[in-house]
């Protein structure tokens, strides 16, 4: 009998409550149960404020769970686990370091010698299509280019778990599709488990092995839809197939209710 390899990420009834000024704790997510296998690409969709980013912060070890368990590679998360890459929802490149030093940052923290770190970083800068911009500072780059820097910064450590929080949310459609293809290419064959948050259903479906739909906040897993589209994929092509449209309709039906609940709440708060 071979021992079962534990999933890369395993959340069991994970709940997160935040302290608030008024004293009553605010529940951001409740009872989230989710497994992500090594090499699996999972996308999470859900209405705004439902706790998607919070879920990632639990997996990354930046925030402890209030209840339930969070495990990475079978070990409970108590600190930041080894081999995690995390691209945050907001810009996190260091404004005072140029592209080269930003990309090499993780290696430098891991005591890799400067020359080696820089040559690896140059390689990654090429791979994300930023060759020639090594000496630029972030304020001299476009938003899309900064996202590429962040992507190279996360990927250079060859993470076994990659957490991406709306990485392409702020990009124009053409750049976004291009980056989606690039991401799939960079990821294929790495065996990394990916959790990718997005508001764009098309993006969610065209990238994923499985789309997870979360409920309106406090969020929990509502649905998980297996995406049986063949790989390797070209995102612009795959979304024109009839299978895709079928899946889209399913997922959207599930998500729509939650979005409407969230919207109604927003309206009630305004009223």
């Amino acid at each position: 009998m071979t021992p079962l390899t534990p999933p890369a990420i395993s959340l069991r009834s994970a709940t997160k409550r935040f302290a608030t000024r008024s004293g009553a704790p605010f529940t951001a997510i409740t009872d989230v149960t989710l497994d992500v296998a090594a090499g699996e690409f999972v996308t999470i969709v859900g209405p705004t404020g439902c706790g998607k980013s919070t879920t990632l912060s639990l997996v990354s070890g930046l925030e402890p769970a209030s209840a339930g368990t969070v495990e990475v590679h079978g070990r409970p998360v108590t600190a930041i686990p080894e081999g995690i890459g995390y691209m945050f929802q907001t810009d996190a490149v260091l404004p005072w370091k140029n592209v080269l030093d930003n990309v090499a940052l993780g290696l430098r923290y891991h005591k890799v010698a400067k020359e080696e770190a820089h040559s690896k970083a140059r390689d990654w800068i090429q791979r994300v299509g930023l060759g020639g911009f090594e000496d630029r500072y972030p304020h001299q780059l476009s938003g899309g280019m900064r996202k590429r820097v962040a992507m190279a910064q996360s990927l250079i450590g060859e993470p076994s778990i990659l957490l991406l929080d709306e990485p392409f949310g702020a990009l124009d459609v053409q750049t976004r599709e291009h980056m989606q293809d690039e991401l799939l290419e960079l990821w294929s064959g790495t065996g990394a488990a990916v959790v990718f948050i997005t508001h764009d259903l098309t993006e969610a479906i065209s990238l994923a092995d499985r789309v997870v739909v979360m409920t309106a906040g406090p969020g929990t897993v509502k649905d998980a839809v297996q995406i049986e589209l063949p790989r390797p994929r070209k995102v612009e092509e795959i979304r024109l197939t009839p299978e895709f449209t079928e899946i889209y309709r399913n997922v959207w039906n599930s998500l729509r209710e939650e979005v409407e609940i969230t919207r109604a709440r927003g309206a009630a708060n305004v009223a």
């Binding site: 995690i84 810009d91 996190a92 923290y109």
Partner: peptide
């Protein structure tokens, strides 16, 4: 978010002080 990012990338306490 800069601090969190650095911690994810493996920064020690001293690294955080020095680089962030």
């Amino acid at each position: 978010v800069l601090v969190d990012n650095a911690r994810i990338l493996g920064a020690s306490r001293w690294d955080l002080m020095r680089t962030i």
